[in-house]
Design a binder for these strands. Sequence first.
DNA 1: AGAACATCTGAATCTGGCA
DNA 2: TTGCCAGATTCAGATGTTC
Lengths: 358, 358
Amino acid sequence: MTAVRELPLDQLLLGDAVEMMRMLPDASIDCVFADPPYNLQLRGELRRPDDSVVDGVDDDWDKFTDFAAYDEFSRAWLSEARRLMHKDATIWVIGSYHNIFRLGAIMQDLGFWILNDVIWRKTNPMPNFRGRRFTNAHETLIWAAREPKSRYRFNYQAMKSLNDDTQMRSDWTIPLCTGGERLRNQHGLKLHPTQKPEALLHRVILAATNPDDVVLDPFSGTATTATVAKRLNRHFIGIERHPAYVEAGWARLREMRAAPAHLTRPMPSRREAPRIAFGVLVERGLVPPGTLLHDRLRRVSATVAADASIIAGAHRGSIHQVGAAVQNAASCNGWTFWHIEREGRLVALDHVRETLRP
Amino acid sequence: MTAVRELPLDQLLLGDAVEMMRMLPDASIDCVFADPPYNLQLRGELRRPDDSVVDGVDDDWDKFTDFAAYDEFSRAWLSEARRLMHKDATIWVIGSYHNIFRLGAIMQDLGFWILNDVIWRKTNPMPNFRGRRFTNAHETLIWAAREPKSRYRFNYQAMKSLNDDTQMRSDWTIPLCTGGERLRNQHGLKLHPTQKPEALLHRVILAATNPDDVVLDPFSGTATTATVAKRLNRHFIGIERHPAYVEAGWARLREMRAAPAHLTRPMPSRREAPRIAFGVLVERGLVPPGTLLHDRLRRVSATVAADASIIAGAHRGSIHQVGAAVQNAASCNGWTFWHIEREGRLVALDHVRETLRP
DNA sequence: AGAACATCTGAATCTGGCA
DNA sequence: TTGCCAGATTCAGATGTTC
């Protein structure tokens, strides 16, 4: 494969993460999700965190050789990922205490701007059999923008909606991937040691992308990221070096149907809603010239002029400017500060404005 | 001050962390708890939606020019701490995404052996006022042994007892330090910007030390670590460079009474652990160690231990077991059997527990 | 006295579009 | 790039005030 101009959209690419990423063009990716292997073994084999817990090999880590090799490997793929990300793109990286501190520090050194660390709290973690430590009941995700000035996407209202209408917190309680979702071979053994739950990717993708965005997973495994991306009408590119995983991933993708497009758009946020100027309310007679505006407790009032400026004593200007002036404040949201009287009760301008929205 | 041979036990030392640690002898400390500056990089004033100003951390001690400066500072104090720790000692370090990845990587580089990363889940975090990120609802603790071969202390049964008789997980749900526990100045403002809850230190110290062990806190602040260590009959050494904090710490220590020694020993590990959900009340100070419990008619009484077991005569165990034993009954609901005295009246534990529910 | 309501606050890397 | 300014944005819990 040689470098391509056009992105290979909705593909699982068989090959090494860094080598394959080198083929892709700069600034072409909207979001990266990466579940990197955590250790480099002597034969170049890559192991993942859960593997080490089961096998008990975590105690055998040779820190001097392996930390350096792991850091070099991490810098290589993170640098390539950063090149592929456009200015406002974000990246998610998941790991455990074995590797996440190194990954986080390297990301900061490369110029990524951490937005949150997010905890995946497992409802059903593997117990600690030897009773010598706390049950390892979580993994850590780092969510970062390409750079401090990125104007990154965050679907705040969608996350709030997903969480009973309160802000989504940095700790997510989600079960392990088990049961029918867990891919198995002919012998009923799990196909991949660390298959992530689709619920986790659902939240990641819904939080940080829009429909038709391109999500890259450089350690695709059995294509959980790609599968959820397809369901949510996002484009995906997966890279995986084990042919068996790629094959299983394609089979999984064939089974997945995308949800109807209108259901996968994030909950519209007020920030992104079309702006409605106060003048429109005046023009259309909802707040005719001469109307009296009051603050919530009727301590101050103002009069609406025909040009949608308002007048309070010596102050004249926008609803925001005059609201700030009468409070002696630096700034003010006039939409929520000012009210009009309707049937004897005060109603915020913000509420009046709602009647103009679809 | 010059180097000492004997440890200055149960003292708050006024001075710089690294300089003061240099005075102390090698391999003399059993456990370190460190809450270093987080290197927050706050760019401007932040206001709540109601336009009030958030009182952020703007202290000089949290100002570093860049990551390199922060790393150098971190390597210096972590190296000294490691020299002071004996072979089997452990260290706890708390931080947020701003600094914890750098700290974790440096700890690994210095030869510490990470045992767990532990998440402090805050029940009542400050929201994200701008709706641009996930609510920052947790902080991360790293628990590490001095070296891979350390035979470190972990009071497994005490942790299990504190957690409803199931293994203590790596995520701990504990509220912020507020209310009466929060130290304030004459004007009612918080004395220290980042005072940690005693419940957090209770769990840390109970998990990883024995009575009479020496706990070092190189960034002692208002002496939360020292205060909880005293309550649990551990020795402490606190280092703090701000005289006002040291003074407040001494005042706080004078108020604290150590619990009776036999109540602060961890639950014997061979013993069948009781089925309780009582530990949270002990940890949060609602039923502090040493509290006397009575039955409704004050015919029998028992004493609360730090690990939430209770003692009545020769009986020691859960509130349920001891309740059954003193009645010569097959079983007993300790929540309704045992009462504490409040303003001269007996209140059932079940009622005390209600205050922790929403 | 107690319920109902109002106010305050906590380790925070906290906006975006247009001229 | 910088400056201006419209306007979007909060949860749990403790404490204080009013009815």
